[in-house]
């Protein structure tokens, strides 16, 4: 480390490999405020890195979205397009993002603007890379709010606040009171009809706790914050999920007079192949979409995490392990808990209706009631919502990191300051979401940021890495330090097949969403101002952060960067 104890001005950029080509020391680059050179953080251990990466990938979707989609789209047959998408889209993009991150990290870049400029050799690359900081921070705005619901439900599972005993509703519809509980908590129920919560105070309290926890972890940095969290949360997540999966499989047939209500009937519902579904384009679209979301591709967080690797650290095996761990959590554990338990409690027909109503109904309306049927149900419900919370928070800190890293890298803002800024953004942008949830505010974020934006950014990544960076450099960089030989066929997949696949996804999603999400067909006219506010916020953040990147770009002209051939 002593070799880097020297100073240089802002224009004496390059650092990293040019300054110390064979060094494993990471350098933090000069900033707009003047010279700033210090060793940047690194992961404490490979286990910690894999846990953090797996935590970043494993999210709420593994346990709520996957089983619902599989059951809805052909059961076992859904896994055919799912695994094809994993092979042609998920794993290649995982390797690309890991490699981009490690490459950028050698030059002190821990966020995508700098990484893209390095790869493209153009200032415009930096602007494209700005999407890698604006999209994740927008994503985390709504993700953290949903994450706070899981924290609240873990608490309410212990207190028994939503149980049938606690309900005073006279209703024949079994899920009526848990739905009422959720809608009251969210403030969606009109005033005067609320039973459980008369105000949003509890929701806001848990949301503030979730935002605060995220900020605290980010402020502690990579090793002491994110890695430590992952080392605690991920083993607990797997433990809770395995306990729940075993418990669900042991439920048998709770009521012998209703033999169809069993966990095995639920597993059959998830896994029985319906090959006719493969003829439908939307099934292929849903499978590819799930692979895309479940691996946290296109969020800029994988690059950020990988940028703390050393120059010759392996990306191939570690990236593959991340994807494999995520698939274990999703296909084996995620497919065994929610739907089978729902079928054992409510039967197949009711579960099909629940599944068609969305992941939130499955997770927050059906599951609390299903756990109630089990002995020690409150305990299993607590485990369920705690595992969802762990899955959520290990993902949300990853989504905050690209912006925090950029603020540190470009404007010299310290870890605590960057974390505070992320917190303020989450609060300011999240408040309308909390207040206007019932007006479709979340759906606009989900489409423009969580669906369209991420796929667009991933497409641009592939073009920059596979085509502009240079085909030889791309392949050499991918294989550097690899502990797993990447088959040559992935060269062609990265350059041709994956971009084409993403293009089809983008067109397909746009086509599917033209009416509802883009033209706002079916949305009540009274909701239009809220929906436009949501769109305006998204556009404003993208433009504002693009401007911040541009200003940084102006102070660090591309002419001072090393030429592409040098790196």
């Amino acid at each position: 480390m002593g070799q880097i104890a020297m100073s240089f001005g802002p224009q004496q950029y390059p650092v990293g490999r040019i300054l110390s080509p064979d060094s494993n020391v990471h350098l933090s680059r000069s900033t707009a405020n003047g010279p700033r050179l210090k060793p940047s953080e690194q992961w404490g251990s490979r286990f910690g890195l894999v846990m953090a990466m797996a935590g970043n990938a494993i999210g709420l979707g593994n346990f709520l979205r996957f089983p619902r989609l599989a059951a809805e789209h052909g059961g076992g047959a859904f896994l055919i397009p799912y695994f094809i998408a994993l092979l042609l889209l998920g794993i290649p993009l995982m390797w690309v993002e890991w490699t981009m991150g490690r490459h950028g990290g050698q030059f002190g870049h821990h966020s995508t603007p700098g990484m893209f400029m390095r790869m493209t050799g153009s200032r415009w690359g930096k602007l494209i890379g700005s999407l890698g900081i604006s999209l994740p921070i927008l994503f985390v705005v709504f993700y953290t709010y949903i994450e706070s619901w899981t924290l609240a439900y873990a608490f309410y599972s212990i207190t028994g606040a939503y149980t049938t005993e606690a309900a005073n509703l006279a209703t024949s519809e079994p899920m009526m009171h848990t739905r009422q509980f959720l809608h009251d908590y969210q403030g969606v129920t009109p005033e005067g009809e609320r039973v459980y919560f008369q105000s949003l105070r509890p929701a806001i309290t848990f949301w503030l706790i979730a935002v605060g926890l995220n900020c605290w972890i980010i402020s502690r940095g990579v090793s002491a914050g994110i890695e430590k969290l992952a080392k605690i949360a991920m083993p607990l997540l797997f433990l809770f999920a395995i306990v729940l999966a075993i418990r669900v499989l042991c439920t048998g047939t709770p009521d012998p007079s209703l033999p169809d209500r069993s966990a095995w009937a639920g597993l059959n519902f998830v896994w029985e192949p319906n090959f006719t579904a493969l003829a439908h384009f939307d099934v292929w679209l849903a499978a590819a979409g799930q692979i895309f979301f479940t691996l946290s591709i296109g969020t800029g967080s994988i690059q950020c995490y990988a940028s703390y690797l050393k120059r010759d650290d392996d990306c191939a095996m570690t990236g593959f392990a991340t994807a494999a761990t995520n698939e274990f959590a999703e296909v084996v554990l995620g497919g065994t808990i929610a739907i089978p338990l729902a079928v054992s409690s409510f039967g197949l027909a009711a579960t099909q209706i629940i599944a068609s109503q969305g992941s939130f109904d499955l997770g927050f309306v059906a599951m609390p009631l299903a756990f109630e049927d089990l002995p020690l149900g409150w305990l299993f419900a607590t485990l369920w919502f705690s595992l969802l919370f762990f899955a959520g928070i290990t993902s949300s800190v990853g989504l905050c990191m690209p912006l925090a890293a950029f603020l540190h890298e470009a404007y010299g803002i310290g870890q605590k300051g960057s974390a505070a800024i992320c917190g303020v953004i989450m609060l300011v942008l999240g408040l309308p979401l909390v207040l206007f949830l019932g007006h479709g505010y979340l759906d606009q974020y989900d489409f423009w940021v969580g669906t369209f934006g991420l796929a667009l950014f991933a497409f641009l990544e592939l073009i920059c890495f596979g085509w502009i960076f240079g085909r030889k450099q791309m392949w050499t960089e991918l294989q550097r330090g690899a502990e797993l030989k990447i088959p040559r066929v992935f060269y062609y997949i990265i350059r041709y097949i994956a971009p084409a696949y993403l293009l089809v996804l983008l067109v397909g999603w746009t086509w599917e969403s033209v009416g509802k999400e883009i033209l706002l067909e079916g949305a009540p006219v009274a909701d239009h101002p809220y929906l436009w506010l949501s769109r305006g916020t998204i556009a404003g953040v993208v433009v504002l952060l693009g401007l911040l990147v541009f200003l940084w770009s102006s102070k660090n002209p591309i002419e001072n960067e090393p030429a592409r051939g040098e790196v």
């Binding site: 286990f47 894999v50 597993l267 029985e272 095996m317 494999a324 698939e327 296909v331």
Partner: peptide
């Protein structure tokens, strides 16, 4: 659940679990 569905499900479980364990153990052994 038919035998075919059961075998299919168990095969996927075994392959996915084994792949995850193999890759994690390879990393930890280095």
């Amino acid at each position: 659940m038919t035998i075919g569905t059961l075998v299919f499900m168990l095969t996927v479980w075994v392959v996915v679990t084994a792949t995850a364990l193999w890759s994690i153990l390879r990393i930890l052994s280095k």
